[in-house]
């Protein structure tokens, strides 16, 4: 395959906090339209890896490339800020704790960045907000504040907010971990819908069922390394590594 298909490429990612090495030489490629799940116990480095992709947690070594452009380029501070802000506009991120802006309505949460960064007029932005919120099934809540929404609704607004920037890539950092069990499904449905539209996604998750039904490929991480990766059928049904088997056994036992 040529370079073009490598949509996201992580080369020898390394990250340490002092003596603690949380990512140990991880390399990973994701093709356009692919959906990759990352599983592993907490502290395995999976969130750190995800957050390195848009440089929220900068790597201490290695490179991240998106669509032929290096994200973590070595540039002087001001130039780097400009560069990274442009890169981040192309990468949507959804957080475990939603991080909606509480002082803005759902509409304002969605329109703020497109108005500020893409120069949309208020009318254009409103139309966009209506489309995006309709897409996640929350058009009727468009003028609600986050405090008036349930956890699942908040997360759907957060997804709409990210999608309003028309990103090339979506990162999900345990998007459903903070939700009450009965609210998980509505968020999963939105993510599945995105998958059907061939959005490139990297999903850090604790939900094995969801990962196996949506992902093209699953990575199991432990102690800062990718222990095993492959299609979900293999990872979940027939893992080769002992550590993967142990994790799945514990995790599935805990879940039931």
């Amino acid at each position: 395959m040529n370079e073009q298909t490598k949509f996201v490429e992580i080369r020898h990612a390394q990250k340490s906090y002092g003596d603690l090495e949380v990512l140990k030489d991880i390399s990973l490629t994701v093709d356009r339209g692919q959906i990759v799940g990352i599983i592993g116990s907490s502290g395995s480095g999976k969130s750190t890896l995800l957050r390195a992709i848009n440089d929220l947690d900068p790597l201490t070594g290695g490179e991240v490339w998106l669509d032929g452009v290096q994200v973590n380029k070595n540039l002087p501070y001001r130039k780097y800020e400009k560069h990274i802000n442009e890169m981040r506009q192309q990468v949507g991120m959804v957080f475990q704790h939603f991080n909606l802006f509480p002082h803005m309505t759902a509409r304002e949460n969605v329109t703020m960045a497109p108005i500020m960064l893409k120069g949309l007029s208020k009318a254009e932005a409103n139309k966009l907000a209506e489309e995006q919120l309709d897409e996640v099934g929350l058009l009727e809540r468009i003028d609600y504040y986050p405090s008036q929404l349930s956890g699942g609704q908040k997360q759907r607004v957060a997804i709409a907010r990210a999608l309003a920037m028309k990103p090339k890539l979506m990162l999900f950092d345990e998007a459903t971990s903070a939700l009450d069990p009965e609210l998980v499904e509505e968020v999963n449905l939105v993510m599945k819908k995105l998958a059907e539209k061939h959005m490139t996604m990297i999903i850090v998750t604790h939900e094995m069922d969801f990962a196996s039904s949506v992902c093209d490929r699953v990575l199991f991480m432990d102690q800062g390394v990718v222990v095993e990766e492959g299609p979900p059928e293999v990872i979940f049904k027939n893992p080769k590594q002992k550590r993967t088997r142990e994790f799945l056994r514990k995790h599935l036992a805990g879940a039931k």
Partner: peptide
């Protein structure tokens, strides 16, 4: 600090994030 992160993730600069997201709160 998730507020600053969310704003930066959308592509806002630190100054923009402070002005529109952090300071109003």
């Amino acid at each position: 600090k998730g507020q600053m992160e969310a704003a930066r993730t959308l592509g806002l600069s630190r100054g923009q994030a402070l002005r529109k997201v952090v300071i109003p709160q």
